[in-house]
Design a binder for these strands. Structure first.
Lengths: 332, 332
DNA sequence: GTGAAAGCGCTAACAC
DNA sequence: GTGTTAGCGCTTTCAC
C-alpha cells in the first residue's frame, strides 16, 4: 500500500542508501543517480515515513506548546511567532491545551517523555519549581508568558513589574489619582508582578495602593464586571482602572458603558496583552502590548538551540512591552 | 540515557515480549510477572518510545487540524470538541495554521503523507474538489466548517443556507425590510450559502436582495466598517445588517456607534459564529451560533471511525445552528 | 504463560 | 560514488 524507500530503490535500480543520500542531500551522489532517484520518487509519489526516520535519528523536529486555554488569542499569536522561526529551521510547532489543569498538562507531557516531540513550551504551567527543575534536567523545556520563581528553566516573558509600572504611570500622567486595579490572585507570578509595578508607580506619586481599589480574583472575564460593580459602589469611585488582561478590561469597559459612564472621559481603562479585539471595543481599549511574535520567535530559537546543544541555556529572558493608549483612556 | 523496553526487561528478568504484553494489557501474563514489570517500569521511570511503537503499529493515534487562522477562536473551540472525543478514544489532536495559503497548507499535509499523523481535518481548505478526492482515496481526511462542492469527502458544517435564512427571518420578524448583507466573495461555499438563505428569507416576505444593500469582500474585519460606511451613505440606509461573521459584525457595530447610531434601536446587527466575544460588545451581539463543541466531536468521531475501518464514510453532515438574539437587534 | 526473533522504514557506519 | 548491513524501540507471530 504505502510506498517505501525500498520500493524507490528497487524501481530506480539503486540501493536504499543512495535514495536516502539523495533525499537528505548531505552525502555525495553522482548527478545521474540523483536525477534517477528524484524522478522515481516523483513517479511513485514517495514521501519518507517520518516514524522510521525519526526513530533512527532519535529526534522529531517537532516542538509541543502546552497552553492553559487555546481560545486565548494571545497564546495562539505566540505560536505563530514560534512557527515563523521553526519553519526556517525545520521545526514544526504543535499545540495542546491543558484547560489549566495539572492532570491534562501532565498527560500532554507524555509526548515529551515518549519522544513524540523534541521539546516543549509551557505557557503558564501548573508544575512547581522543583518539578520543573527535575524535568529540565532530562528534557528540553521552556516557559513562556509566565515564569515560576525558583525554576531554573529557560523562560521568556515581558518584564511584568515594569509593565505594571508603565501602565500605572500612563494613568497617573493623565492626572488620575484614584485608580482601581483588577488583578488575579493565583500562584501565577505575572499578575502579582504587574501589581507590584503598579504600586511602585503610585508610590512615585506619593500614593499607596488602596485596598478598596484592589479587586483580585481569577482571569475569568466576569471579574471585570464584578470589579466595576464593587468600585462604583464606593463613596469615591476610581476615575481609572488598570486590568491585568484585556478580557478583564473589556468586560469592565462593557459594564461601565452599561452603567451610563462614558469610557475615556468619566472613567479611563487600560488592559494588558493587546489582543486584536482591543480595537473592536467602543471606545477602543488602551493596553500594554506583549510582543507575541517576538516572544514566540525568541522562545523557539532558544529552545531549539538547547535541543541541539548539550549545554542548556536556562536563562530568564524578557522582551520589551509597549503601552498603547487608545480611546478608553483620557485625562482626569 | 533514555531507558528502553530492553532495560526494563533486563532489570525485571523477563523478556521484552512480556514487558510489552504487560504494557499493552491485551495478552495474558501471569500476575507475578505483571507486578514485577510494573514495579520495574515505575522504578526506572520508563515511558515507551512512541516512535518505535507507532512505526511498528503503523499508526500514531494523532489527528492534525489545519486551520486558515489559528487566532480565530471559532476554530480553536472546535478543536476543544475534537479533543474531548479524542481523549476518550486514545487520540491526540494537534493543530497547525496555514494562514490561508495553499503552500503552507500543502506543507502541513506532509504530516499526513509521512505518517506523522493518522488523519487530518481541514477547516476551510484551499484545495479544489479534484485534489481533495484524490487525497481522500489514500488518506483519512475530513473537512469542517467549510465544504467544497464536488468533493466526495467527509464533511461537517452547519446548514449554512438554512442558517442564513433563519438570520434573515429573525430580522424580518422584527419588522426590518431594508437589510444590509455583509458577505464574503471567495471560493468558500459557506458565505454564498448564507447569502442564498438570506435571499430566500427576503423572497418569503416579497423582497429582493437589493445590490445596494450587498457588500461582499473578505473576512478581514475592516470590511465591517467599510460596509457600514457604504450603507450609511445611501439615500435610504438599511435599518438592519446581517454579517457572515461575528468579527465583521463587531467591526460594523463599532462603526455604527462611532457614527452616533444606537445599535439595537437605530440599527440592528446580527453576526455569525457566536464567538465568546459577542457578549463583550456594547450592546452584546446577536448571532447565529455554530455548535463548535458538537462539530468538533462529530468530525473527530467520524474521522476516527474512518481511520479504523476500510470502508470510508464520505458523507456530508450538518449540525444544528441556533439564532441568538442579544442587545444588537431590536424592533424596527 | 513466556521467550526468541522478525521486521516496521529509515539513516549512517563501514567496506569497497 | 555506491552498496551492504546493523540497529533505532517497539509489537507480534511462532514455538515451546
Amino acid at each position: 500500500m504505502s510506498v517505501t524507500i525500498k520500493d524507490v530503490a528497487r524501481e530506480a535500480g539503486v540501493s536504499v542508501a543512495t535514495v536516502s543520500r539523495v533525499l537528505n542531500g548531505n552525502s555525495s551522489v553522482s548527478e545521474s543517480s540523483a536525477k534517477l532517484v528524484r524522478e522515481t520518487v516523483e513517479r511513485l509519489g514517495y514521501s519518507p515515513n517520518f516514524l522510521g526516520r525519526n526513530l533512527r535519528k532519535r529526534s522529531t523536529n517537532v516542538i509541543l506548546v502546552i497552553m492553559p486555554n487555546a481560545e486565548h488569542s494571545l497564546y495562539m499569536k505566540i505560536c505563530v511567532g514560534m512557527q515563523t522561526y521553526g519553519q526556517k529551521h525545520g521545526y514544526d510547532i504543535i499545540t495542546a491545551s491543558s484547560n489549566a489543569t495539572n492532570a491534562v498538562e501532565s498527560r500532554h507531557m507524555n509526548m515529551v517523555f515518549n519522544k513524540t516531540v523534541d521539546g516543549v513550551v509551557l505557557m503558564g504551567t501548573s508544575f512547581d519549581a522543583q518539578t520543573l527543575n527535575r524535568l529540565a534536567d532530562n528534557y528540553d523545556i521552556a516557559l513562556c508568558c509566565e515564569g515560576v520563581t525558583g525554576a531554573n528553566v529557560l523562560t521568556v516573558t515581558v518584564d511584568d513589574e515594569q509593565a505594571g509600572y508603565d501602565a500605572g504611570i500612563a494613568l497617573l500622567k493623565k492626572g488620575h489619582r484614584k485608580i482601581g486595579f483588577i488583578g488575579v490572585r493565583s500562584t501565577a507570578l505575572s499578575a502579582t508582578l504587574r501589581r507590584n509595578g503598579f504600586a511602585r508607580a503610585l508610590r512615585e506619586y506619593g500614593l499607596e495602593l488602596d485596598p478598596a481599589y484592589l479587586y483580585e480574583n481569577t482571569y475569568d472575564d466576569e471579574n471585570g464586571e464584578l470589579a466595576i460593580e464593587r468600585f462604583m459602589s464606593l463613596p469615591e469611585p476610581p476615575t481609572a482602572v488598570f486590568a491585568v488582561s484585556d478580557l478583564l478590561a473589556m468586560r469592565a469597559l462593557k459594564k461601565c458603558v452599561e452603567l451610563g459612564l462614558t469610557v475615556g472621559k468619566d472613567i479611563s481603562i487600560i488592559g494588558f496583552d493587546n489582543i486584536s479585539m482591543c480595537e473592536l471595543t467602543n471606545p477602543s481599549l488602551s493596553t500594554v502590548e506583549q510582543p507575541c511574535l517576538k516572544m514566540g520567535e525568541l522562545v523557539a530559537r532558544k529552545l531549539i538551540e538547547n535541543i541541539n546543544s548539550d549545554t542548556k541555556d536556562n536563562k530568564y529572558y524578557t522582551v520589551p512591552h509597549r503601552v498603547i493608549l487608545r480611546g478608553s483612556t483620557g485625562d482626569k
